[in-house]
């Protein structure tokens, strides 16, 4: 048992940055997912988080578990990938997937805020009228774009740091 702790201590000491980045990535993903719900309930509805307490707590738990697994998987894959190009492609795929969720969440947040419903059949019915594009230029929409950009660069920064610290000390 003692040797196990010694072993962990050694690994943790040698890979402190990777471990911190893994935890950081978990927290970042969890914050990204959970804050979406908190902001839309607080800013875009007549309700408070307390009105949806049970489902909010359940959804948060799912997000937390997912974030922990996803962040750990990303760290493991980054550790096992040897070639810098493979790591870069992997980061590209991750950023693409992250942007996809941002894109979807951006529209769904806007749909909830402006019309009170999730993106639904009615949204798609009117999505392609040119007159409907006006909603893309409101102050709220601009705030959403800013949030999307900030989250994206936050993710990019974390993955870049992982790339640096899992690449045998070589800087990209």
């Amino acid at each position: 048992m003692k040797s196990l702790f010694e072993n962990i201590k050694t690994i943790a000491g040698e890979n402190r940055n990777v471990i911190l980045l893994g935890i950081g990535l978990t927290l970042y993903l969890a914050f990204y997912f959970i804050s979406w719900h908190v902001t839309i309930i607080s800013l875009g509805s007549f309700y408070s988080v307390l009105d949806a307490a049970e489902s909010f707590v359940a959804q948060s738990a799912r997000y937390l578990v997912f974030s922990a697994i996803a962040a750990s998987a990303v760290c493991a894959i980054m550790l096992f990938l040897k070639r810098p190009l493979a790591k870069k492609i992997f980061i590209g795929v991750l950023l693409f997937l992250f942007f996809c969720t941002e894109f979807i969440r951006m529209f769904d947040w806007g749909a909830l805020y402006f019309s009170g419903n999730h993106v639904d059949a009615n949204f798609w019915t009117h999505a392609f009228y040119s007159d409907s594009t006006t909603f893309l230029f409101t102050m709220v929409s601009i705030a959403i774009y800013l949030a999307v950009i900030l989250f994206f660069f936050g993710m990019f920064y974390l993955l870049k740091q992982l790339y640096i610290h899992t690449g045998n000390g070589e800087r990209p």
């Binding site: 072993n7 962990i8 690994i11 943790a12 890979n15 990777v18 471990i19 893994g22 935890i23 978990t26 974030s67 922990a68 697994i69 962040a71 750990s72 760290c75 493991a76 550790l79 096992f80």
Partner: peptide
Amino acid sequence: KLSLLILGLN
């Protein structure tokens, strides 16, 4: 081992 450690800590 490092991967498992990260998973555990996460």
